[in-house]
Design a binder for these strands. Structure first.
Lengths: 235, 235
DNA sequence: GCGATGCTTTGGCCTTCACCGAAGCATTTC
DNA sequence: GAAATGCTTCGGTGAAGGCCAAAGCATCGC
């Protein structure tokens, strides 16, 4: 098998604790410098440098140099989905020591970004609320935005591209579909895909949530509290 | 981070060439013995045994002993999806040597099973045909079975469970959603999820396709040729 | 029982690779 | 220019783990 070696190589890149820590940190979709990544992974900059070089040639991250800084980010949404799927398996086979999750862990479980959409308790609560209000319908395989949902997004000023990529035949109007993504901390689906991305972006630009320091965790602002309650019926 | 170590461990399990080969072989969803897996991975049985023990305690495969045989299979659909997503990244960063794909590779590219659904040229052609006939609609995020599609499946005798898992509130009728899955060899989506599984199962039971020896590759029977042409308009 | 088959465990060899300290570039700042 | 900062390359060390041969358990068939 030709692709077997490439498979093992990619998996191996994610299979080192140091590299895993850096990839984990990059899951929020932002670009970070080598020193920052070294710090979160708990290794020295020179070690991180070597790892990042390998991740780069392996096609998992891309580098963008800017002055004396080098910004690293995940190479593609496919990489983010891969990391997410590994996390799901890891969460399933986890040692399940429920005692003592650290404070940082708690913040992550409450609300965090997952590459380009929202996850954690907030992400799941949003998905639940949209389902309960009849604005989306979800199975484990896929989801769809109903007419009520489309009206809501329109009211919020969230633009969704309701066209299909039919190669050749040009764009065509169709239903808005969305992708569910099993949350590794909540074990329940949250919204991913195009709809999840648009919703997450809106939450940030509207000032409903903001990042905690430089982590994937997000905190809900007072304005966000109000809107999540009034618009979605959360809390 | 509590889950970081578990993440690296899971990824590392898939990151060894020997284990990767075995996992790859298990991707067709069947249960294989340690000796068979050793052969496809190109290692000795005792080495394979060690690897399988680690994969088992790591939660990637489950073992089922039957007489003096021990059958191994992927532990869950989540594991299959993880392997699939790693393949996609690996295919994206592949060395792109298009020259010389082996005969086995050719058979795999033509048609194969991917855990519980169809992939390869056939899988993509089926998805394309269903879209072209207006029986399903697909985006990169998700898909939906249209009324025409539901009629087709009904005519074929394929039962689809059109209910949503709304915990607490009991079952509820809804639209049939399906999951697209990017094919690593064709770079185009094929049908996965519940619909993909049901369709694949039907193709086998109706005698339209059958497995080639003991591999993931499938061959199309004469009866299958006719039906794929008459029912779906393929070829 | 006895041999054959499937699988696992043990032991020893050997490669791989993560790690850090120190030195070397590159870029910015003064 | 000189110092400071971000990052990389080099060299050496140490541990982890893949590999196989041989021996040890199980199970099946006669």
């Amino acid at each position: 098998m030709a692709s077997n070696a490439a498979f093992a190589e990619v998996a191996n890149l994610a299979g080192d604790p140091g590299r895993a820590g850096m990839l984990h940190a990059l899951m929020d979709g932002r670009a970070l410098t080598a020193t920052e990544l070294a710090r979160v992974a708990g290794i020295t900059p020179q070690t991180a440098s070597g790892h990042l070089a390998r991740l780069s040639t392996g096609g998992l991250v891309t580098v963008q140099k800017q002055g004396r800084h080098r910004y690293h980010r995940l190479a593609s949404p496919a990489v983010a989905r891969m990391l997410e799927s590994i996390m799901q398996v890891a969460a399933g086979s986890a040692p399940r020591r429920k005692a003592f999750v650290g404070p940082r862990d708690l913040a992550l479980r409450a609300a965090r970004t997952c590459y380009d959409h929202l996850a954690g308790h907030l992400g799941v609560a949003l998905a639940d609320a949209l389902v309960a209000n009849g604005q989306i319908e979800l199975t484990s395989d896929a989801g769809i935005v109903t007419g009520k949902g489309a009206a809501l997004f329109d009211r919020l000023g969230i633009e969704l591209d309701a066209t299909f990529d039919k190669k050749g035949s040009g764009k065509r109007k169709g239903r808005m579909l969305c992708r569910p993504c099993l949350d590794w901390s909540e074990r329940r689906p949250h919204l991913a895909g195009q709809v999840g991305r648009a919703l997450c972006r809106h939450c940030f630009t509207a000032g409903w949530i903001k990042h905690v320091d430089g982590t994937r965790a997000v905190s809900i602002t007072a304005k966000g509290q109000r809107n999540f309650r009034d618009v979605f019926g959360i809390r």
